[in-house]
């Protein structure tokens, strides 16, 4: 990062924090929007008594497991729907229907079926991430250029080689886009699930803070969501950049 960019980044962060600080206690009551100082104090306190790690750990565990499950199912089913006409005709209509139902809307049903335990949360996150991965994978597999397949056949590839040697590598950029989108959806899914039914996790922390009138805790929750989302997305981008140097797909 060059000096100019660093300066602009600092200004951006300072202005954002400044607006927050000055609006707290003036435009908003401090009991609703606490100042950065009291949020930082709360953060320190929660780190000290390890409460924060319990919440964060619970949420991350749910995300990692739910996301991994969603990705595996999404890639497998997505490849099938993209590559096999019969699978596409059978699977796609109900999925096209389901993709319009946001994960949050499923929470009451999931709680009735699975109770407030962990399984329901994994389900919500897997659903949220799986759908994104699935549709991107299917689109990627289905959009393999016909002439690339034909070129490979001319060069001696057997029909059974085409999938691994041509279709999958051609779809790879689409699949990675799906995986990255799904990561974002996992964060949304976990918060929604925890807000409605949990006794731990960042979503629970935010929801509970209104009940016990602890606004600083809510903002600690925001801080965690924002920074962890940012960190995982950056990690993801770096990984993609390494993996995708061969494709040079510009990832925003």
């Amino acid at each position: 990062m060059n000096a100019g960019k660093l300066a602009r980044l600092s200004v951006s962060i300072l202005v954002f924090t400044g607006v927050w600080w000055t609006s707290s206690g003036t435009f908003f009551e401090e009991a609703i929007v606490p100042s950065p100082v009291s949020v930082a104090g709360k953060l320190g306190e929660m780190i000290w008594n390890t409460q924060l790690f319990a919440h964060l750990g619970a949420s991350l565990r749910r995300i990692v497991l739910g996301y991994a499950l969603g990705c595996v199912i999404g890639v497998v089913v997505g490849v099938a729907t993209g590559a096999i006409r019969l699978a596409r005709d059978l699977i796609e209509p109900p999925l096209e229907f389901c993709r319009n139902i946001p994960p949050v809307a499923l929470i009451p049903l999931v709680v009735s079926i699975f109770g407030i335990g962990e399984i329901g949360k994994y389900f919500i996150i897997s659903y949220a991430s799986g759908i994104a991965v699935l549709f991107n994978t299917a689109a990627g597999v289905a959009s393999t250029p016909q002439i690339r397949v034909r070129a490979a056949l001319c060069l001696g590839a057997r029909k059974q080689d085409i999938f691994v040697r041509v279709v999958l590598p051609s779809a790879w950029p689409h699949i990675l886009t799906g995986l990255r989108l799904a990561l974002g959806f996992s964060f949304m899914g976990v918060v929604a699930a925890e807000m409605l039914a949990a006794d731990q996790g960042i979503g629970f922390l935010i929801m509970q803070s209104t009940n016990i009138i602890a606004p600083a805790e809510m903002f600690v929750g925001f801080l965690m969501l924002g920074s962890f989302g940012l960190i995982t997305d950056q990690l993801f981008r770096m990984t993609i950049h390494r993996l995708m140097r061969r494709y040079m797909i510009p990832m925003a």
Binding site: P145, I147, R148, R150, A151, A152, C154, L155, V166, P169, W172, R246, Y247
Partner: peptide, 15 residues
Amino acid sequence: RTVIFQDVSNALFPW
């Protein structure tokens, strides 16, 4: 018999 396609970006393996 090997075909040389006009749409070379899609004919080559970009990876």
